[in-house]
Design a protein around this nucleic acid. Structure first.
Lengths: 333, 333
DNA sequence: CGGCGGAATGGGAGCGCTCCCGGAGAATCA
DNA sequence: TGATTCTCCGGGAGCGCTCCCATTCCGCCG
């Protein structure tokens, strides 16, 4: 193994000079810097991460707690992970994978042993049991998602309440008077996943304000359960003309089922949804949708946590405003 | 920060004794061990990973190169990751997340800096550009997937050739004389993903041996493209009665489209597929399928790499035999 | 009774870095 | 000119472990 000492000797400078060339923490003459860099390349030197961590008290590692149950949200989860890793690498950080399923305490273990300098936790639920423990962590933490009790914690999330409102208002503006929300699998609500509840809030409050008739349905995936759900939603006495769908897993089946019923979107029924753009585009009928800006959320989470590595920062909650993309699946009534 | 020295003082022993209690590398009297363990708990000691890595030349970290493009195989990918992380933790290893997209060189960086002791690489393709570089790595490497040129490398994969044969034989045994393979998105073949090609091999050689008429179709996801594909497959002159599907993404749409055509599975058409069990079970028609034993593959990969950390091992290729689960979607002709 | 083997533990060098503390020499100032 | 400031760099302690090399204290043998 090539050490910094050998580089120093090869370049005819001291260890400290090599170290400073690498870290840029003090100014080095152009000439010396060049010589050192040449020696580094010539010898194929790579700094030893353990030694660096020990001496500098920084591991340059970010702990990422992610859910590994394989549910329907996987594509969005992967978008998060992908932007988190990419952004972390921009800060010269690597990402250590911790799983939600391994239980709380994983984050603590990793911080206590100085394996990571900070934690980003995904898929945070309303009453997440992992949250209290996080407050005690002696390291920056940022949550993706917003638990009910987020005092003292930094969170990044989409403003689901606003998203719910915006979708309702979109339909109301088009003249719809009776609408329905097709929500997630019941288990999502049972798990208390905060975003589902917040979207529901927004949906209901906007519907009330606009004086719309609004019903709410949760829907499990599967051919039969989608059909049953639509039977209910579309029963004539409701007079529903607009659908808000917050359930990626059933979108495809739902559209096919509408086609089976000979209902045209948007002529007979307007549909608007919250899902990733690529999904909305690739469906049987491209859907007007609000996207979860997963890339952006992940990047912001990393940036927040990095800022907190530098110096103290007060906790902060950032709710990104959703953006609506028209794809022609909603029409005036 | 509590160090080993403070624990030693608290327990009235030397640093080395504490170290040996922790590592178990030499025998310690029960009495001493107990005292040390009590001190560890009392003080809340956690060993510093950097110091340990520096002194022992072991990081206790496994580098995992995974694909982050969010395609349809996400659920399977997550099963891999999940079992890899769980198995690694059993060996007291953590997992560092490297992305395929970040390019080759990431594995090298992480090994050269001693951030990780070994590498597991997922989603390896036939002519994977990352592979040559791996041979030069001075650390154990195990591939999930099998490149064309895997000399000197250890690989774990499903025996896709056998899977292809087995599905054909299953249909042939039931008396089908004309069958079709509905394969992946063309891009999967373009990418040269080795498993797709191997399954195709198995399919074709078994079909030849059984003297079946067999056609092959690749199919992009999307309502229209599935419909078009089925138009082709089911054109009367082919007389296809059995379908082998190797494309998770279109399974759902395909079954719904068959229903639309008033074709009953299995009365009018037998369908067999290769996909995760939970997917096969939850479809409109539960499908007889071969599962990718992702959990097992991941665990084996980690076990192989761990074995190679201990001592030299010759490279080894392990192809797991697939297993067929009947779910009634195939019938005698 | 001396010698010897084995069990239990202590001491501390050294792993490869970072960063504090200076020092040498050039440049600037009064 | 001497004093002061700057710029650039070297020396090396110390980060918290691991593991090699003793040392001590037994019991046992001849």
């Amino acid at each position: 193994m090539i050490t910094i000492k050998e580089v120093a000797r090869h370049a005819g400078v001291s260890m400290s000079t090599v170290s400073y060339v690498l870290s840029g923490k003090r100014s080095i003459s152009e000439e010396t810097k060049r010589r050192v860099e040449q020696s580094i390349v010539a010898l194929g030197y790579h700094p030893n991460a353990g030694a660096r961590a020990l001496a500098s008290n920084r591991s340059q590692v970010l702990g990422l707690v992610m859910p590994l149950r394989s549910d329907q949200n996987m594509p969005v989860i992967m978008q998060f992970v992908s932007s988190i890793v990419a952004t972390a690498r921009n800060y010269d950080y690597d990402v250590l994978l911790l799983t939600k399923e391994a239980g709380p305490g994983e984050a603590h273990r990793v911080i206590a042993r100085s394996m990571a300098d900070a934690i980003v936790m995904m898929d945070v639920e309303s009453a997440d049991p992992r949250v209290p423990e996080l407050r005690a962590l002696d390291a920056p933490v940022v949550l993706l998602g917003m638990p009910d009790d987020h005092e003292d914690l930094s969170c990044v999330d989409l403003d689901f309440t606003a998203a719910g409102k915006q979708m309702v208002n979109h339909l109301a503006d088009l003249g719809h008077r009776s609408i329905a929300l097709i929500g997630s699998h019941p288990s999502v609500y049972d798990r208390g996943t905060s975003y589902a509840a917040r979207l529901l809030d927004g949906f209901q409050s906007a519907a009330a304000k606009r004086k719309l008739t609004a019903s709410v349905h949760s829907c499990a995936p599967g051919y039969d359960s989608v059909a049953a759900c639509l039977d209910d939603v579309l029963s004539p006495e409701r007079g529903v003309t607009g659908l808000v769908v917050h359930n990626e897993a059933v979108l495809g089946q739902l559209l096919l089922d509408l086609r089976r019923r000979s209902l045209d979107v948007p002529a007979d029924l307007s549909v608007i949804t919250l899902c990733p753009d690529d999904l909305a585009e690739s469906l049987a009928v491209p859907l007007t949708s609000m996207a979860v800006p997963a890339q952006e959320l992940g990047a912001i989470a990393v940036e927040m946590v990095m800022a907190r590595l530098g110096q103290e920062h007060p906790p902060e909650v950032r709710l990104l405003q959703p953006q609506l993309t028209e794809r022609g699946s909603t029409a005036a009534r």
